[in-house]
Design a protein around this nucleic acid. Structure first.
Lengths: 205, 205
DNA sequence: GTCTATATTGAGATAGAC
DNA sequence: GTCTATCTCAATATAGAC
């Protein structure tokens, strides 16, 4: 009942296909120009309607951003949770997590660009507090696997596991800035290149 | 004479200490809130003056951003150029470049945050075309060293050198988001941790 | 679900006094 | 070098017709 009441508070049911179209358009423009520099008029233009008509679908410009971020973060954290719950040897689980991260990137690059660009600004606002929670849970899941690998002697333990986690998270996420879906490497190949580099390094021994 | 004429075209000589103070303040606020979401009134407030008075020092809000980015990028590229010109074995040069990158980060974290956050938006504007040139020269310098290392058999050559470069550049730059100048690790220590990870990997063999 | 028309606010920037 | 006062424009959002 709570969900039903929440849905009624919106301008229109969340399942509308038109709504999803507009949201995808908005995400792309947010990614290209930055959220603050995007005007509702631009979004409306790209959707082929007038700016006022947007407010039939959404409460505000901020609501659009909110939905995009929530959906993307939820999707990513879900993947990580499932992978860690499934369990296995730390090396295999870490490999799977890296592939999860790149898969989330590939599933909606524009949404990830927006999240990376706006994260620091948004976590300061109460409305976007869930971003901090999602980031915390992700760190717990990833760092836990790295620590277990250190305990069982699979990973070297002379570097702070949380620092390793941060370097990994940032490296994977930020690659969305140069990743080209139509380029010569698939997202899985890039994930494997990264894993090669991460696990064995670039030096010949 | 050209430089003198250019200086006169500005509102006030570029050497003014007050000017540099205001620029540092603006940089910090740009980094915290994003350039587009920062108002000239906020900058003026933080500087203890009224917004109109800013225009005695700067032509526009965009001019402030321009000066910050230009100074930071020039400083970084200068370091890289010097290091590569000095030469040496590829492994040593790459180590030095990584330390250069982290040193640039440490020299002005706020400016780097602004550059990372606004880069994609700004390179689209003619005024900020120099960003693209700086990025290109950096890529040429770094990728050249990596390629030489591959030729001489120091680095593995089964991964595209430009992909290695991108992963490295992004990983170093983006760490400014969690780097804490008052934290327990110095910027040199973080650089060494990163080099350990990059060169030999995290897997025990 | 979209349009017309408009209310309202807040932004960057300027002119001239001190 | 800063302040007072203000211009001008563009942005989000709303109300009601179709």
């Amino acid at each position: 009942m709570t969900a039903e009441r929440a849905a009624r508070r919106r301008a229109v049911p969340a399942e509308s296909v038109r709504r999803e179209e507009i949201l995808a358009i908005a995400t792309r423009i947010f990614a290209d120009k930055g959220y603050a520099s995007t005007t509702v008029r631009e979004i409306a233009d790209a959707a082929g309607i007038l700016s006022g008509s947007l407010y039939h679908h959404f409460d505000s410009k901020e609501s659009m951003l909110d939905e995009v971020m929530r959906a993307f973060l939820d999707g990513a954290v879900d993947r990580y949770r499932r992978t860690v719950t499934k369990g296995g040897d730390p090396l295999g689980v870490l490999r799977a997590l890296v592939h999860d991260g790149f898969a989330a990137l590939g599933s909606n690059p524009a949404a990830l660009v927006v999240m990376i660009n706006e994260f620091n600004l948004l976590v300061q606002s109460p409305r976007f507090a869930y971003l901090r929670e999602g980031a915390s849970e992700t760190e717990r899941l990833w760092a836990g696997v790295i620590e277990e690998g250190m305990r069982t002697g699979v990973f070297r333990s002379d570097i702070d596991p949380r620092m390793i986690y941060r370097f990994m998270r940032d490296t994977i996420w930020i690659s969305v800035r140069w990743y080209d879906p139509d380029g010569k490497n698939t997202i899985e190949e890039i994930a494997d290149f990264y894993l090669e580099m991460l696990l064995d390094g670039i030096r010949v021994r």
